[in-house]
């Protein structure tokens, strides 16, 4: 019987993934189209240094996008990723600068605090049955306030931990391949994307993310403690926000308390453009990475062409709505 020798390719052929694959293909086509278009329009667009610019500009949004993707596939939403990111970078600052602890405490501390805050919002969503939109909207605002309170509205500078400011912009790969010049932030993004894809496709948590997004009630009636898994999903998302926080604050050399709001919308936009369904159950990490690249290539390309800033926003808005339209069409067909 052929059923006993199922391979990964069968997996990819099955219905749920066909639609996602198709949409990923659409998103990828858009990406290629943009690259071709900008390359034709500007001789300087297609250069290695500009590619690095784009990758760097993409990294933080892509990482936040990964956090959003996990939550959105599970039919949730996380509006607090931006300010949680800032919160984590501030925790890193408080631990390693204000308290003078070494980085090997400061960095894990920041990630764990992200996970803890994520677990809190997850627990409120799961046990108190408050819609995730409301809970994370609340966390978004509350964290913004906390960020200002903790820092007294002053940035925390990482001057006393000079290594910290190298984590993100430094290019460790250049030691191996001189002149490659890809900053670590980009590698962190790629690595995280791979790990997140493995979590989604190969681990029990990932399986529950798809299952909950597809039919939460059926999962509950299968005797699964749905609430615990929800907490887990938001905790993981929170920890990934922590990674974004490290990347951004390392690049800026400081934890800036007032930033963060607005990042969640870019991250959600990347996720949606990448084919993740806001209704849950469908989506991929690769799609989100592509989505994040579409946004930053659009921004970079239009800047290189000296197109006025405001058109940048018009273009991303247009692409976002188109992406959701394509998503819906594919869903009803599939």
């Amino acid at each position: 019987m052929n059923t006993t020798t199922v391979s990964q390719t069968d997996f990819a052929k099955s219905g749920m993934f066909t639609v996602a694959t198709l949409q990923k293909a659409v998103a990828f086509a858009v990406l290629l189209l943009l690259v071709v278009f900008f390359s034709l329009m500007s001789p300087v667009f297609l250069s290695w240094s500009n590619a690095i610019n784009i990758m760097t500009a993409t990294s933080v949004n892509a990482v936040l996008g990964i956090a959003c993707t996990l939550v959105i596939i599970s039919a949730g939403i996380d509006l607090s990723v931006g300010t949680l990111m800032t919160f984590c970078s501030i925790i890193a600052g408080v631990l390693s600068i204000n308290l003078g602890l070494p980085l090997w405490i400061g960095i894990p501390g920041a990630l764990l605090s992200g996970a803890a805050v994520g677990a809190c919002s997850g627990a409120i969503i799961a046990y108190l049955k408050i819609p995730p939109f409301i809970v994370t909207l609340g966390f978004m605002r509350a964290l913004y306030g906390l960020n200002i309170v903790v820092t007294s509205a002053k940035p925390i500078y990482f001057d006393d931990q000079p290594k910290y400011s190298l984590i993100s912009p430094d290019s460790s790969i250049s030691a191996l391949i001189p002149g490659l010049g890809i900053p670590n932030a980009v590698f962190v993004m790629v690595l995280l994307a791979i790990v997140a894809a493995i979590v989604l496709n190969r681990t029990i948590l990932g399986r529950f993310i798809y299952a909950l997004g597809s039919n939460e009630e059926a999962v509950r009636l299968s005797g699964v403690n749905v609430n615990i898994w929800k907490v887990g999903i938001y905790a993981l998302s929170g920890m990934i926000c922590g990674i974004a926080g490290l990347l951004l604050s390392s690049r800026l050399g400081s934890a800036q308390p007032a930033i963060g709001m607005g990042y969640e919308l870019d991250a959600i936009a990347a996720t949606v453009i990448g084919g993740t369904s806001l209704a849950g159950g469908r989506g991929t990490i690769l799609g989100t990475i592509i989505g994040a690249f579409i946004i930053s290539i659009l921004s970079n390309g239009l800047t290189v062409l000296s197109v006025a800033d405001e058109w940048k926003y018009v273009a991303t808005g247009f692409i976002l709505v188109t992406a959701v339209y394509v998503d819906m069409r594919l869903k009803y067909r599939g």
Partner: peptide, 10 residues
Amino acid sequence: KRFGVVTGLS
């Protein structure tokens, strides 16, 4: 469809 199977899974 609502309570028995998770239709999106294999």
